[in-house]
C-alpha cells in the first residue's frame, strides 16, 4: 500500500462522527413508518429537511453524491416511485452548489429561502411525477410545503446539536 497522502494533507477522519449526518438523514426518512394511516399528505418529508439542514449549515458534512443513497432509502420507505428522491435531491444539491459559488456570504434568512425553494422543487416535481394532473392535491401540497419550510430552522438546530455533541465527545 503506497502512501498517496501528501505531507501537508489532513489525516482522514476515522471517527464515528463522520457518519452522524448520514445516519440522522436516514433516521428522519424512517419516520415514514410511523403508524398512522394518513388520508391527506400533510406530513413533511423529514429526510429531505435534514439533508437540506446539513447541506446548508455544514456544507462539508456530506459528500455531493450522498443524496443518491439517502434518496434511494427514502424512496423505498415513502410511497414515491423509485428514483424520485434520488434524482430530485441530487439536483437540489447541484443547485445549492451553484448558489454557493455565487453568494458566498449568506445569512440564515437566505439559507431558509434556498431551503424553501429546494423543498418546493422536490415536492412539486414529486407530485407531478406520481399523481395524475386532475387529482385534487394541490392545496394540500402547498400546505405541506409551508409546513416543511417552517420546520427548516428546527432541522438546522438539530444539526448544530448533533455536531456539538460530537465535538464534546
Amino acid at each position: 500500500m503506497s502512501q498517496i497522502r501528501g505531507p501537508f494533507d489532513e489525516p482522514p477522519d476515522t471517527s464515528f462522527g463522520r457518519f452522524v449526518p448520514a445516519v440522522s438523514v436516514l433516521a428522519a426518512s424512517t419516520f415514514a413508518v410511523w403508524p398512522v394511516i394518513a388520508h391527506v399528505p400533510l406530513f413533511p418529508p423529514l429526510g429531505l429537511l435534514m439533508l437540506l439542514g446539513w447541506r446548508l449549515s455544514r456544507p462539508l458534512s456530506l459528500p455531493v453524491w450522498a443524496s443518491l443513497p439517502l434518496g434511494l432509502y427514502d424512496d423505498l420507505l415513502s410511497g414515491q416511485p423509485l428514483g424520485n428522491s434520488m434524482l430530485f435531491w441530487t439536483l437540489c444539491s447541484f443547485m445549492i452548489d451553484l448558489i454557493d459559488q455565487r453568494i458566498v456570504f449568506r445569512d440564515f434568512w437566505q439559507d431558509w429561502l434556498i431551503a424553501g425553494g429546494s423543498i418546493c422543487f422536490c415536492l412539486i416535481l414529486g407530485r407531478l411525477v406520481v399523481s395524475p394532473l386532475a387529482a385534487h392535491v394541490d392545496t394540500l401540497l402547498m400546505l405541506q410545503i409551508a409546513v416543511t419550510t417552517l420546520l427548516f430552522p428546527l432541522a438546522t438546530r438539530i444539526c448544530t446539536m448533533l455536531t456539538r455533541e460530537e465535538e464534546t465527545v
Binding site: V64, S67, P81, G83, L87, L91, F94
Partner: peptide, 25 residues
C-alpha cells in the same frame, strides 16, 4: 464525487422513468 453524483442522477432518472411506465417494477 461530482462524476458519481451526475452519473447517479442519470441512473435515477432512468429508474424514475421505468417506475412511471411500469409502477410495480
Amino acid at each position: 464525487g461530482y462524476v458519481i453524483a451526475a452519473a447517479g442522477s442519470l441512473v435515477a432518472a432512468v429508474l424514475l422513468a421505468l417506475s412511471a411506465i411500469d409502477p410495480p417494477a
